[in-house]
């Protein structure tokens, strides 16, 4: 695999006494889309949330091992978590725009640093909304509350919000599970477009979605990565019996 963006080495995660992720060793290549699939509770969202230290919010989470974003050790206590989250953006399962205007949602991350002029912010907001294919629908009502948008629009707005701070990696946690098929198709097109500029890791329950968008797919089961490889191989010539049973729909 060329050009590794994120490398996870001997990674273990416990919630209290529960061993949730076991000996994860996996690498995500730059400018590709990697899908994490597996039955509910297999730890794929937990793994995803480890990549921008979201587990800092849960006091009983214990993380061991290494996660490297290029040279940056993400789990090292002295690595600035704010810097990590600016490099690793995240889009959540349910669209979660802030109860602010469309404009302010996208501007939020830019205002945090306080280094952008208002004119600068305005151009960035416009460009991010364009990149997320939501500009045409919202350009005349940027001051409208983001909560008045449809679910699919909200999710594209959340993607615009995430790319506004120019991250290197975008994590998506089942971004389409709350959306209708048309909105889902729009988001998938968007992801294929965005991978030219960002490294994307997506958790999905939808195996067709993984096949449509992902270059590589990792199948997880009970906290372990069972099999990882090019998407085509995972779905058509899985090496493991467990993987085959899952992708053929025998359990899940």
């Amino acid at each position: 695999m060329e050009n590794i963006k994120i490398a996870i080495r001997d990674f273990n995660l416990h919630f209290g006494s529960k061993h949730v992720l076991k000996n994860i060793n996996i690498e995500f290549p730059a400018n590709k889309i990697v899908a994490l699939i597996g039955p509910s509770g297999c730890g794929k969202s937990t793994l995803l949330r480890s990549l921008n230290r979201m587990h800092d919010l849960s006091p009983d989470a214990r993380l061991e091992g290494d996660i490297l974003l290029e040279d940056l050790p993400l789990l090292h206590p002295r690595t600035d978590v704010v810097a990590i989250r600016r490099k690793v953006g995240m889009v959540f399962q349910r669209p979660n725009p802030f109860p602010k205007s469309i404009y302010e949602n996208v501007a939020f991350g830019l205002r945090l640093t306080g280094t952008h002029t208002e004119a600068d912010i305005r151009t960035r907001v416009e460009s991010c909304l364009q990149q997320s294919y939501i500009w045409e629908e919202t350009k005349d009502e940027l001051q409208k509350s983001a909560l008045q948008l449809s679910g699919g629009q909200q999710q594209r707005l959340c993607i615009a919000r995430a790319i506004a701070v120019e991250p290197e990696v975008i994590l998506l946690d089942e971004p389409c599970s709350a959306l209708d098929p048309i909105s889902t198709a729009k988001i998938e097109d968007l992801l294929l477009e965005l991978k030219n500029r960002y490294t994307i890791v997506i958790v999905t329950h939808n195996m067709q979605q993984a096949q449509r968008v992902a270059d590589f797919t990792a199948f997880m089961y009970l906290g372990e990565v069972i099999e990882y490889g090019p998407t085509d191989q995972i779905f058509n010539q899985p090496q493991q019996m467990l993987t085959r049973n899952y992708v053929e729909g025998h359990f899940g």
Binding site: R86, G89, F92, N96, F108, G109, L112, R161
Partner: peptide
């Protein structure tokens, strides 16, 4: 909702900024 706070944290906001702005 917790999702608001998560959204702010994921954009690199610290807990003070999250409280005040979100």
């Amino acid at each position: 909702p917790n999702t608001y706070k998560e959204g702010a944290y994921a954009l690199g906001a610290n807990s003070w900024t999250t409280l005040i702005t979100v």
